[in-house]
Amino acid sequence: MTIKSFKVNFKNKRVLHTGIKLLKAFLILFLFLGLGELIKYFIEIPIPGNILGMVLIFIALKLKLIKLEWVKPASDTLLNYLVLFFIPFGVGLMSYFDFINLYWVILCVAAGLSTLITLYVTALIQQKLEKHD
């Protein structure tokens, strides 16, 4: 009886611990997001605050101001569900059916051609210049 209750208690503690870790990780991510938005607010630069946040968190990790394991739980969670978050924008296409009906040829040609050109140029340069070891 006492052993059983101890085990339950132990398990709860671990769950709580990972929960707090995750919360802390999200807090840090939001802190950098806020920092990015703040910079964007005070300096007139045409870069979205969240992209500034992305650059800032990379620099902070690189300079060892924050540790990877502090933020990894939150970033892994978010990236795992990344596609979920932009589904609403995709659903927004339903308001533009007429528009797409009119211009689908242009959209397909432009997207298809430029994607193939980009793939080829990027791969060619990387293949020509990269070092192998």
Binding site: F26, L29, F30, F32, L33, G36, P48, N50, I51, G53, M54, V55, L56, I57, F58, L61, L68, V71, K72, A74, S75, D76, L78, L79, L82, F85
Partner: peptide, 8 residues
């Protein structure tokens, strides 16, 4: 926040 996570 997902974009910030890309930095990580």
């Amino acid at each position: 926040p997902s974009i910030v996570a890309l930095g990580v």
